[in-house]
């Protein structure tokens, strides 16, 4: 009797936690939607989505989100170009090539990499990486998109490595045996058999990596210079969606247009990350099948 009641209580607690999480996500979305809609009451949605000027404290203010979206996209693409080859190659090495001892060491190092606080990376970016890139590329300033991309690539690496590695290790043993049986070399097996077989898992890792990069705030706020210009190159200073919200939210009086515009920016960011996570989930489902 006592056991049954205990089971019941525990079960309901777990169910409640699950439902609460869903409820929170929906509530957050509704809050963002509500505040954004009140912005579009006073500021035309067309100017918000397609405006190319972000001047929130001017008279009259301009809340064109295009420079911010482009800023986020530039930084993210830069980071992905850097970290995907590096991450997948590392995952291949850990899963198939590395001897067991090295494998263990590498795996724990990757975990340590994941636990470096972003503000520490940002600081490294300001005092070391930025000046270094400025010298190397003869830039006007080291506070540019590339600095952000490099640091963000560093932050997305653990996600990509560990999920890709799981995907490659998860390929059934029979694939390997069949390949070796047909006389394939280790590299041929890895490149032509295992990698395609693990591709959905690797895609999922890349999508989750993108999600991590596009939502990251502290690093980009600290190192990308935050100029709300339309970027042409990753070597320019640029301003991302996240840095805008973080940099300006503290100052706005709640209920003002600027405050609502930041919520609308948050909504755009939420929708972008939601789509990316959704795609990742689709690929993950495929891996499991």
């Amino acid at each position: 009797m006592f056991k049954k009641i205990r089971e019941f209580i525990i079960e309901s607690c777990i169910r409640l936690s699950g439902l609460l999480v869903i409820l929170f996500v929906i509530l957050i979305f509704l809050l963002l939607l509500k505040e954004s809609l009140s912005l579009f009451g006073v500021y035309p949605i067309k100017d918000f989505l397609f405006g190319t000027k972000w001047l929130p404290v001017s008279e009259p203010p301009k809340f064109g989100i295009i420079p911010l979206v482009l800023g986020s996209i530039f930084v993210t693409i830069g980071a992905i170009i850097i970290c995907v080859p590096l991450g997948v190659a590392t995952a291949m090495f850990i899963a198939e090539v590395a001897p067991p001892t090295l494998k263990h060491i590498l795996k724990s190092l990757v975990e340590i990499l994941a636990s470096i606080p972003s503000v520490v990376l940002g600081f490294i970016g300001i005092v070391w990486l930025g000046p270094f890139l400025k010298e190397t590329f003869h830039l006007n300033t080291g506070m540019c998109g590339l600095t952000g991309s490099l640091l963000l690539a560093f932050m997305a690496l653990p996600t990509i490595i560990s999920i890709s590695e799981d995907a490659i290790t998860g390929v059934p043993k029979s694939y390997r045996e069949a390949a070796f049986g047909l006389g394939a070399t280790r590299w041929q097996t890895l490149w032509r058999i295992l990698l395609p077989a693990a591709s959905s898992g690797i895609m999922a890792s890349i999508m989750l990596g993108i999600g991590r990069v596009i939502g990251e705030t502290m690093v980009v706020l600290m190192v990308t210079g935050n100029s709300p210009i339309l970027p042409h190159s990753i070597l320019q200073p640029l301003r991302t969606l996240t840095a805008t919200i973080a940099g300006e939210m503290g100052e706005t009086v709640s209920g003002s247009d600027h405050y609502l515009a930041l919520f609308a920016t948050g909504l755009i960011l939420f929708i972008i990350t939601f789509i990316i996570n959704f795609i990742a989930e689709v690929y993950l489902q495929r891996t499991r099948k």
Partner: peptide, 15 residues
């Protein structure tokens, strides 16, 4: 518009 907006006075000193 290409002015860099930095998040603290110390960041300006560093740059």
């Amino acid at each position: 518009s290409d002015t860099l907006l930095l998040s603290s006075s110390q960041a300006i000193v560093e740059e």
